[in-house]
Design a protein around this nucleic acid. Structure first.
Lengths: 195, 195
DNA sequence: GTCTATACTGTGATAGAC
DNA sequence: GTCTATCACAGTATAGAC
């Protein structure tokens, strides 16, 4: 995405680019995107601000780079979905797989959910939204009734938004929340199939 | 909330404070919160930046002030709910009323949805979240199964998040989306009641 | 190819005169 | 209640060292 050398090394120690990403997502999550300055990130890494600009064109670019692996995973799911019959069984499996992807990208998704506006510029967000729409198209027919299209949309958003916004009583509930959300989500496309 | 003179006038012409709010929400919605400078807002109003600081302590305060009337409306709904029996009929009516409140606060809610992170500071956001939790407590028993509590949460979030995030084919769908969302939302607490 | 030094513009914010 | 003047700091850009 950037002209910077991407996977220059397959070795164990993370590249500077990766170290920037790690530090940035940690600080963004802690203080929020706009309350984290590039100076802070640079100081944590022991480099100067300008060094960041060698690896990323802008501050937004750093944030946008978080989504790369998530987008790849989501694409893989949709690619699989394209090869399957358009029926209920495929759809519940799509949701199941999507729930798994979400599970391994919670910090990124939480960050995204909280910072939508900061990422709207230059359609970085719409890249994400287009992928969500691609999944949606696999879950419901394009000419279905509005309520069915809405319910399919809810089936998707429920999976990650509950995880992020539902007020936890106890942190150990995490896994139960994930399973219950999946159950609700599947229930929705079952309701669609029944109508 | 601010020390500034709040409702100094009941007359027709808007106070400077209200003019600032109107201009700010328009510009924030158009360019996003952090891509709108106080200089822009001031210029649109024909005043200087410093004048804004007489009416609001910070830029965040301007944004936070948007929620005042929404919060009042939501409180009113919950106050009513407290006087009613804890049964299905009350709960569907709560959702119906909440949907009405949302309808008259769409720009504010859209702004909130998009700018959560920018407002997190000083717990301005948590004031909103606490109200959402109060409504949630009216929709489901505190000791209910996790999946039922989650479904009640979804019943709330569906009402506004669909309106904001669902990709419209046509802007005239607005009203249909609202109705279908309410139907889905009610369906969820009905599912809770059935279990 | 990777970084430092340095500088620029614009931001949110404050103090004090009118 | 609004202004001018000023502040520290933000994101950004580039020239050049290694």
């Amino acid at each position: 995405m950037t002209e910077a050398p991407r996977e220059a090394r397959e070795q164990n120690q993370p590249s500077t680019r990766e170290r920037i990403q790690q530090t940035a997502i940690a600080l963004f999550s802690e203080h929020g995107y706009e309350h984290t300055s590039l100076r802070e990130i640079a100081e944590h890494l022991g480099v100067t601000k300008a060094a960041l600009y060698y690896h990323f064109k802008t501050k937004e670019d750093i944030a946008a780079s978080f989504f790369e692996s998530y987008a790849v995973d989501l694409d893989r799911i949709c690619d699989w979905g394209d090869t399957q019959p358009r029926e209920l069984g495929t759809r519940t499996e799509l949701l199941r797989r999507y729930a798994e992807v979400i599970r391994s990208h919670v910090p990124v998704l939480r960050f995204m959910q909280n910072n939508q506006a900061a990422l709207t510029r230059l359609d970085r967000m719409s890249v994400f939204r287009l992928r969500q729409q691609r999944l949606h198209a696999l879950l419901v027919e394009a000419d279905a009734a509005l309520i069915n299209r809405l319910r399919a949309w809810d089936a998707i958003t429920t999976l990650y938004s509950n995880w992020i916004t539902f007020p936890r009583v106890d942190d150990s509930e995490e896994e139960e929340i994930r399973e219950a959300s999946l159950q609700i989500s599947i229930g929705m496309i079952e309701a669609n199939a029944a109508s």
